[in-house]
Computed example of a mutant assay.
Amino acid sequence: MWHFVENEVPVGPVTEQEMIDRIRGGRLKPTTLVWSEGLTSWESAESIETFKRLFRATPPPLPTAPKTPPLPAFSSKRPIFADDVKTYDPTDLPLQRAIVAKGSPWSRYAARLLDQVIWAVPAVFVLLVIAAITQNPWFINLLSNQVAAILMIMPLFGLFNALTMTFFGNTIGKTIMGVNVRPENGRKAGLSFYLLRELKVLVFGMGIGFPIVAFFTQLYQHKKVKIEGQATYDRDLAEVNVYFTSKIRMGVVLTCAFLAAAYLNSPAGEALGYPLGQAAYTLVSSFR
Protein backbone atom coordinates (compact mmCIF):
# COMPACT_ATOMS: atom_id res chain seq x y z
CA MET A 1 0.00 0.00 0.00
CA TRP A 2 1.22 3.53 -0.83
CA HIS A 3 0.75 7.04 0.56
CA PHE A 4 1.32 10.28 -1.37
CA VAL A 5 1.17 14.02 -0.69
CA GLU A 6 -1.50 16.11 -2.42
CA ASN A 7 -1.91 19.82 -1.64
CA GLU A 8 0.41 19.34 1.36
CA VAL A 9 -1.92 16.67 2.80
CA PRO A 10 -0.96 12.97 2.93
CA VAL A 11 -3.42 10.68 1.17
CA GLY A 12 -3.62 6.92 1.51
CA PRO A 13 -3.32 4.08 1.75
CA VAL A 14 -3.87 3.32 -1.95
CA THR A 15 -2.84 0.34 -4.05
CA GLU A 16 0.12 0.32 -6.40
CA GLN A 17 -2.27 0.10 -9.38
CA GLU A 18 -4.03 3.29 -8.22
CA MET A 19 -0.65 5.02 -8.04
CA ILE A 20 0.14 3.90 -11.60
CA ASP A 21 -3.25 5.14 -12.83
CA ARG A 22 -2.64 8.54 -11.20
CA ILE A 23 0.78 8.83 -12.86
CA ARG A 24 -0.61 7.91 -16.30
CA GLY A 25 -3.45 10.37 -15.81
CA GLY A 26 -1.06 13.17 -14.93
CA ARG A 27 -2.47 13.53 -11.39
CA LEU A 28 0.77 12.42 -9.74
CA LYS A 29 3.95 14.28 -10.73
CA PRO A 30 7.58 13.07 -10.61
CA THR A 31 8.29 15.36 -7.66
CA THR A 32 5.28 14.19 -5.64
CA LEU A 33 6.36 12.77 -2.28
CA VAL A 34 5.41 9.13 -1.77
CA TRP A 35 5.91 6.59 1.00
CA SER A 36 5.34 2.88 1.59
CA GLU A 37 6.38 0.34 4.17
CA GLY A 38 10.10 -0.34 3.83
CA LEU A 39 11.01 3.29 3.07
CA THR A 40 12.72 5.20 5.84
CA SER A 41 11.39 8.57 4.68
CA TRP A 42 9.23 10.23 2.03
CA GLU A 43 10.76 9.99 -1.48
CA SER A 44 9.90 11.62 -4.79
CA ALA A 45 7.84 9.41 -7.08
CA GLU A 46 10.50 9.52 -9.82
CA SER A 47 13.07 8.01 -7.44
CA ILE A 48 10.99 4.84 -6.93
CA GLU A 49 12.03 2.10 -9.34
CA THR A 50 8.43 0.92 -9.83
CA PHE A 51 7.26 4.36 -10.99
CA LYS A 52 10.42 5.73 -12.62
CA ARG A 53 9.68 4.13 -15.99
CA LEU A 54 6.23 5.72 -16.12
CA PHE A 55 7.57 9.27 -16.22
CA ARG A 56 8.79 10.66 -19.54
CA ALA A 57 12.53 11.25 -19.41
CA THR A 58 13.45 14.94 -19.70
CA PRO A 59 16.95 16.50 -19.56
CA PRO A 60 17.80 18.33 -16.34
CA PRO A 61 18.25 22.14 -16.42
CA LEU A 62 21.69 23.50 -17.28
CA PRO A 63 23.89 24.11 -14.26
CA THR A 64 24.42 27.72 -13.29
CA ALA A 65 27.12 29.27 -11.19
CA PRO A 66 25.99 30.00 -7.64
CA LYS A 67 25.33 33.67 -6.92
CA THR A 68 25.32 33.75 -3.18
CA PRO A 69 27.23 36.74 -1.80
CA PRO A 70 29.17 36.13 1.40
CA LEU A 71 27.40 37.05 4.59
CA PRO A 72 28.71 40.07 6.45
CA ALA A 73 30.81 39.24 9.47
CA PHE A 74 28.43 41.07 11.77
CA SER A 75 25.29 39.27 10.46
CA SER A 76 23.39 37.05 12.87
CA LYS A 77 22.49 34.75 9.98
CA ARG A 78 24.33 31.53 9.36
CA PRO A 79 24.38 29.00 6.50
CA ILE A 80 21.75 26.27 6.59
CA PHE A 81 23.16 22.80 7.10
CA ALA A 82 21.60 19.45 6.16
CA ASP A 83 20.70 18.74 9.78
CA ASP A 84 18.50 21.84 9.79
CA VAL A 85 16.19 20.42 7.12
CA LYS A 86 13.55 18.14 8.59
CA THR A 87 12.23 15.20 6.59
CA TYR A 88 8.59 15.62 5.58
CA ASP A 89 6.38 13.66 7.95
CA PRO A 90 2.55 13.48 7.86
CA THR A 91 2.44 13.68 11.64
CA ASP A 92 3.73 17.29 11.36
CA LEU A 93 0.30 18.23 10.00
CA PRO A 94 -2.64 18.97 12.28
CA LEU A 95 -4.01 15.66 13.54
CA GLN A 96 -7.45 16.26 12.10
CA ARG A 97 -5.96 16.43 8.59
CA ALA A 98 -3.66 13.41 8.82
CA ILE A 99 -4.82 9.89 8.05
CA VAL A 100 -3.74 7.37 10.67
CA ALA A 101 -2.18 4.28 9.11
CA LYS A 102 -3.35 0.68 9.63
CA GLY A 103 -7.01 1.64 10.05
CA SER A 104 -6.99 1.81 13.87
CA PRO A 105 -9.29 -1.18 14.59
CA TRP A 106 -10.22 -0.03 18.10
CA SER A 107 -11.44 3.34 16.79
CA ARG A 108 -13.61 1.53 14.27
CA TYR A 109 -14.93 -0.88 16.92
CA ALA A 110 -15.76 1.99 19.31
CA ALA A 111 -17.57 3.85 16.50
CA ARG A 112 -19.72 0.83 15.59
CA LEU A 113 -20.49 -0.03 19.22
CA LEU A 114 -21.58 3.56 19.89
CA ASP A 115 -23.83 3.51 16.80
CA GLN A 116 -25.42 0.24 17.94
CA VAL A 117 -26.19 1.69 21.37
CA ILE A 118 -27.71 4.78 19.74
CA TRP A 119 -29.88 2.68 17.40
CA ALA A 120 -30.91 0.11 20.05
CA VAL A 121 -34.12 1.84 21.20
CA PRO A 122 -35.29 2.84 17.66
CA ALA A 123 -34.62 -0.74 16.45
CA VAL A 124 -36.68 -2.24 19.30
CA PHE A 125 -39.45 0.26 18.56
CA VAL A 126 -39.54 -0.81 14.90
CA LEU A 127 -39.88 -4.47 15.92
CA LEU A 128 -42.69 -3.57 18.34
CA VAL A 129 -44.48 -1.66 15.56
CA ILE A 130 -44.22 -4.77 13.36
CA ALA A 131 -45.61 -6.86 16.23
CA ALA A 132 -48.49 -4.39 16.67
CA ILE A 133 -49.28 -4.48 12.95
CA THR A 134 -49.14 -8.27 12.54
CA GLN A 135 -50.38 -9.20 16.05
CA ASN A 136 -48.76 -12.55 15.41
CA PRO A 137 -48.36 -14.49 18.70
CA TRP A 138 -45.36 -16.40 17.35
CA PHE A 139 -43.54 -13.17 16.44
CA ILE A 140 -44.44 -11.56 19.79
CA ASN A 141 -43.11 -14.59 21.71
CA LEU A 142 -39.96 -14.50 19.57
CA LEU A 143 -39.26 -10.95 20.72
CA SER A 144 -39.15 -12.13 24.33
CA ASN A 145 -36.16 -14.37 23.45
CA GLN A 146 -32.99 -12.31 23.84
CA VAL A 147 -30.92 -14.14 21.19
CA ALA A 148 -33.78 -14.04 18.67
CA ALA A 149 -34.34 -10.34 19.37
CA ILE A 150 -30.63 -9.61 18.77
CA LEU A 151 -30.69 -11.53 15.47
CA MET A 152 -33.65 -9.40 14.33
CA ILE A 153 -32.15 -6.13 15.58
CA MET A 154 -28.72 -6.54 13.90
CA PRO A 155 -30.02 -6.08 10.31
CA LEU A 156 -31.88 -2.96 11.49
CA PHE A 157 -28.58 -1.53 12.77
CA GLY A 158 -27.13 -1.98 9.27
CA LEU A 159 -30.20 -0.40 7.64
CA PHE A 160 -30.08 2.63 9.97
CA ASN A 161 -26.33 3.06 9.42
CA ALA A 162 -26.72 2.84 5.62
CA LEU A 163 -29.54 5.39 5.57
CA THR A 164 -27.63 7.77 7.87
CA MET A 165 -24.43 7.62 5.78
CA THR A 166 -26.40 8.05 2.55
CA PHE A 167 -28.24 11.18 3.64
CA PHE A 168 -25.78 12.73 6.12
CA GLY A 169 -22.40 11.38 4.98
CA ASN A 170 -21.53 9.63 8.25
CA THR A 171 -22.93 8.14 11.44
CA ILE A 172 -22.66 9.74 14.88
CA GLY A 173 -20.25 7.10 16.16
CA LYS A 174 -17.94 7.33 13.14
CA THR A 175 -17.95 11.14 13.30
CA ILE A 176 -16.99 11.15 16.99
CA MET A 177 -14.20 8.60 16.43
CA GLY A 178 -12.88 10.23 13.22
CA VAL A 179 -13.79 7.28 10.98
CA ASN A 180 -14.79 7.77 7.35
CA VAL A 181 -15.98 5.17 4.81
CA ARG A 182 -15.81 5.80 1.08
CA PRO A 183 -16.05 3.54 -2.00
CA GLU A 184 -13.01 2.08 -3.74
CA ASN A 185 -12.34 1.98 -7.47
CA GLY A 186 -14.64 4.87 -8.37
CA ARG A 187 -17.84 3.35 -7.00
CA LYS A 188 -20.73 5.66 -6.20
CA ALA A 189 -21.35 6.31 -2.51
CA GLY A 190 -25.09 5.67 -2.58
CA LEU A 191 -27.58 3.67 -0.56
CA SER A 192 -26.84 0.43 -2.45
CA PHE A 193 -23.11 0.75 -1.64
CA TYR A 194 -23.69 1.31 2.08
CA LEU A 195 -26.32 -1.47 2.27
CA LEU A 196 -23.91 -3.91 0.61
CA ARG A 197 -21.10 -2.98 3.00
CA GLU A 198 -23.36 -3.22 6.06
CA LEU A 199 -24.53 -6.66 4.90
CA LYS A 200 -20.92 -7.83 4.58
CA VAL A 201 -20.08 -6.34 8.00
CA LEU A 202 -23.08 -8.16 9.51
CA VAL A 203 -22.02 -11.54 8.09
CA PHE A 204 -18.21 -11.42 8.11
CA GLY A 205 -17.65 -8.93 10.93
CA MET A 206 -20.51 -9.42 13.39
CA GLY A 207 -21.23 -13.12 12.80
CA ILE A 208 -24.90 -12.25 12.02
CA GLY A 209 -25.30 -11.50 15.73
CA PHE A 210 -24.57 -14.93 17.26
CA PRO A 211 -22.46 -14.08 20.34
CA ILE A 212 -19.85 -16.87 20.04
CA VAL A 213 -19.55 -16.54 16.27
CA ALA A 214 -19.31 -12.74 16.56
CA PHE A 215 -16.41 -13.07 19.01
CA PHE A 216 -14.29 -15.01 16.52
CA THR A 217 -15.28 -12.96 13.45
CA GLN A 218 -14.45 -9.68 15.23
CA LEU A 219 -11.15 -11.11 16.49
CA TYR A 220 -10.24 -12.17 12.95
CA GLN A 221 -11.20 -8.81 11.40
CA HIS A 222 -9.29 -6.95 14.16
CA LYS A 223 -6.15 -8.87 13.16
CA LYS A 224 -6.70 -8.13 9.46
CA VAL A 225 -7.16 -4.39 10.07
CA LYS A 226 -4.17 -4.26 12.41
CA ILE A 227 -1.80 -6.03 10.00
CA GLU A 228 -3.15 -5.19 6.53
CA GLY A 229 -5.04 -1.97 7.25
CA GLN A 230 -8.25 -3.38 5.77
CA ALA A 231 -10.96 -5.83 6.86
CA THR A 232 -11.87 -8.66 4.51
CA TYR A 233 -15.40 -7.32 4.03
CA ASP A 234 -13.96 -4.03 2.70
CA ARG A 235 -11.66 -5.65 0.14
CA ASP A 236 -12.36 -4.33 -3.37
CA LEU A 237 -15.37 -2.47 -1.96
CA ALA A 238 -14.60 0.30 0.53
CA GLU A 239 -11.74 2.38 1.89
CA VAL A 240 -11.92 3.20 5.61
CA ASN A 241 -9.83 6.09 6.91
CA VAL A 242 -9.29 7.11 10.53
CA TYR A 243 -8.38 10.80 10.71
CA PHE A 244 -7.45 11.00 14.38
CA THR A 245 -7.07 8.77 17.40
CA SER A 246 -7.37 9.56 21.08
CA LYS A 247 -6.99 6.96 23.83
CA ILE A 248 -8.95 9.16 26.21
CA ARG A 249 -11.83 9.61 23.76
CA MET A 250 -11.77 5.91 22.90
CA GLY A 251 -11.84 4.96 26.58
CA VAL A 252 -14.74 7.32 27.31
CA VAL A 253 -16.76 6.10 24.29
CA LEU A 254 -16.18 2.41 25.03
CA THR A 255 -17.00 2.86 28.72
CA CYS A 256 -20.22 4.77 27.99
CA ALA A 257 -21.24 2.28 25.28
CA PHE A 258 -20.65 -0.76 27.50
CA LEU A 259 -22.51 0.85 30.42
CA ALA A 260 -25.44 1.73 28.14
CA ALA A 261 -25.49 -1.81 26.70
CA ALA A 262 -25.42 -3.26 30.22
CA TYR A 263 -28.31 -1.00 31.25
CA LEU A 264 -30.42 -1.96 28.22
CA ASN A 265 -29.89 -5.65 29.02
CA SER A 266 -30.69 -5.20 32.72
CA PRO A 267 -34.20 -5.52 34.26
CA ALA A 268 -34.40 -1.71 34.34
CA GLY A 269 -33.63 -1.53 30.62
CA GLU A 270 -36.04 -4.33 29.77
CA ALA A 271 -38.75 -2.32 31.57
CA LEU A 272 -38.46 0.20 28.73
CA GLY A 273 -40.14 -2.36 26.51
CA TYR A 274 -43.54 -1.72 28.09
CA PRO A 275 -43.80 2.05 27.29
CA LEU A 276 -42.24 1.40 23.87
CA GLY A 277 -44.84 -1.29 23.22
CA GLN A 278 -47.63 1.06 24.28
CA ALA A 279 -46.27 3.78 21.98
CA ALA A 280 -46.01 1.33 19.07
CA TYR A 281 -49.59 0.09 19.61
CA THR A 282 -50.87 3.69 19.82
CA LEU A 283 -49.03 4.64 16.62
CA VAL A 284 -50.41 1.66 14.70
CA SER A 285 -53.94 2.22 16.06
CA SER A 286 -53.92 5.83 14.86
CA PHE A 287 -53.62 4.62 11.24
CA ARG A 288 -56.47 2.10 11.48
Rank of each mutant, 00 (worst) to 15 (best):
D84G: 02
D84H: 10
V85C: 01
V85I: 07
K86L: 11
T87W: 06
Y88W: 14
Y88L: 09
D89F: 03
P90E: 00
D92M: 01
P94T: 06
L95M: 10
Q96F: 15
R97D: 06
R97G: 03
A98G: 15
I99E: 04
I99Y: 09
V100Q: 14
K102M: 04
G103I: 03
P105K: 04
S107G: 12
S107I: 05
R108W: 03
R108I: 01
Y109T: 09
Y109M: 06
A111M: 01
R112F: 01
L114A: 05
D115A: 01
Q116R: 08
Q116D: 02
V117Q: 07
I118K: 12
V121N: 08
P122C: 10
P122S: 12
A123K: 13
A123G: 10
F125S: 06
V126A: 12
V126P: 10
L128H: 13
V129F: 05
V129A: 07
I130C: 15
I130Q: 13
A131V: 12
T134S: 08
T134M: 07
Q135N: 09
N136M: 12
P137W: 13
W138Y: 15
W138K: 15
W138G: 15
F139E: 10
N141K: 09
L142N: 14
L142W: 13
S144W: 09
S144C: 06
N145P: 12
N145G: 10
N145D: 08
A148C: 12
A148W: 14
A148E: 09
A149E: 06
A149M: 11
M152C: 14
I153V: 08
I153N: 04
I153T: 10
P155M: 00
L156Q: 00
G158E: 00
F160D: 00
M165V: 07
T171S: 05
I172A: 07
I172W: 13
G173R: 15
T175E: 06
I176A: 07
M177R: 11
V179R: 01
V179S: 01
R182K: 15
R182W: 11
P183G: 02
P183H: 05
N185S: 09
N185P: 07
